[in-house]
Amino acid sequence: MTYLKTKFKIFPIILVSYFSIMGPLVFYLAYNSPEAHVWPAVLFLLLIVLFWFTVLRTRAHSLEINEDHIIVRRYFGIGKSNIYKIAALDGFMNKFESAKGGVYESVFIFENGKRIGSISNFYHKNFEILKLRLQDNLLNLGETTSAF
């Protein structure tokens, strides 16, 4: 088995960057405007923070898969590295979610019943290769349904 690392698509990076810049910019413009109210800008900024701490924390992971371990980094790979032995992992679950752009598949990796990492065909260019590697090394725990 060879070394494999996730590659991110450019669209999610641009989308996240755009909203991350727009939040503080809208707040700044509303705060300095004599006519605009600040509370809609604060609400928008809070939604951006909520997005960062929910969707990005659980979906935008960078994975490095080696022969006997997986390294997981959150937040597009800029988060803290966590190393997991492949032999100690429970397996993975698939999740299909529909959105305006189509149906997206996510694969969640589990250790001791907890999600430790994920890959998604929305965020990752090489999703299919990563999924095949996970299927070769981990137990498929089935499919989970969307909460929405």
Rank of each mutant, 00 (worst) to 15 (best):
N137H: 06
K95D: 07
S106L: 02
L138P: 04
G102C: 07
I78F: 14
K131W: 03
V107M: 07
S118N: 12
R133S: 12
D90N: 13
F92V: 04
S118Y: 06
I78R: 01
G79C: 12
S81L: 11
A87K: 15
I109K: 03
N137C: 03
V103H: 05
I86L: 12
Q135C: 07
Y104T: 10
Y123F: 15
G117M: 04
V107D: 05
F122M: 08
K131I: 07
Y84S: 06
V103C: 08
E111V: 03
F108I: 05
Y104K: 13
I129Y: 00
K85Y: 12
G102S: 14
L89P: 03
I116A: 04
E105V: 06
S81M: 14
N82R: 15
G91L: 08
G113A: 07
N94K: 14
R133Y: 06
K85C: 09
K114W: 10
K85M: 10
F76E: 11
G91R: 03
V107N: 00
K125F: 02
Q135D: 06
A87S: 13
F76A: 10
N126C: 04
A87P: 00
N137S: 10
K95I: 12
D90C: 01
F96L: 13
S106A: 09
G91N: 06
K125H: 01
K114C: 09
I86P: 00
K85T: 10
R115M: 10
